[in-house]
């Protein structure tokens, strides 16, 4: 619905892709690990290979969790914008269909957080 206003009401979105210096914003969530209180937001190159996301980025984000080192990455289940994907390490984010403000969620079977209760 349009904004009820006294005149024309048209504004540029504040977070358009071109405002991020060549990067796109990507959101990531490790399911059932709420010790990390919320999904994270990172600016990444759309050319970043998925393998680099897993091996370089995620340790910086999540290695404080005791279960992080136990992750079997071959068993991890991924979704991109809520659709299941089977990413290969050399596929780039763009190849996978990720766009500005896309959301990756990953589930680690058998690892359900501290005490097994999603912390």
């Amino acid at each position: 619905m349009p904004v009820t206003s006294i005149g024309e009401y048209k504004f540029e979105p504040l977070d358009k892709r071109e405002n991020f210096h060549g990067n796109i914003l990507i959101y990531i969530n490790w399911e059932k690990h709420l010790m990390f209180c919320a999904p994270v937001c990172v600016p990444l190159s759309p050319d970043m290979p998925f393998g680099a996301l897993v091996s370089e980025l995620l340790p910086n984000v999540y290695s404080a969790h005791p279960e992080f080192e136990k992750i079997d990455w071959d068993a991890v289940e991924w979704t991109l914008d809520h659709k299941p994907i089977s990413p290969e390490p050399d596929q780039t984010l763009e190849d996978l269909g990720a766009h500005h403000k896309s959301l990756f969620r990953f589930t680690t079977p058998g690892l359900n957080g501290i005490g097994g209760v999603a912390s």
Partner: peptide, 19 residues
Amino acid sequence: DHEPEKYVQAWLPVHQIYQ
């Protein structure tokens, strides 16, 4: 959804830091 034109202007601190 009722007034998207208003909220697309939101000054989100995290996005502003990255900009």
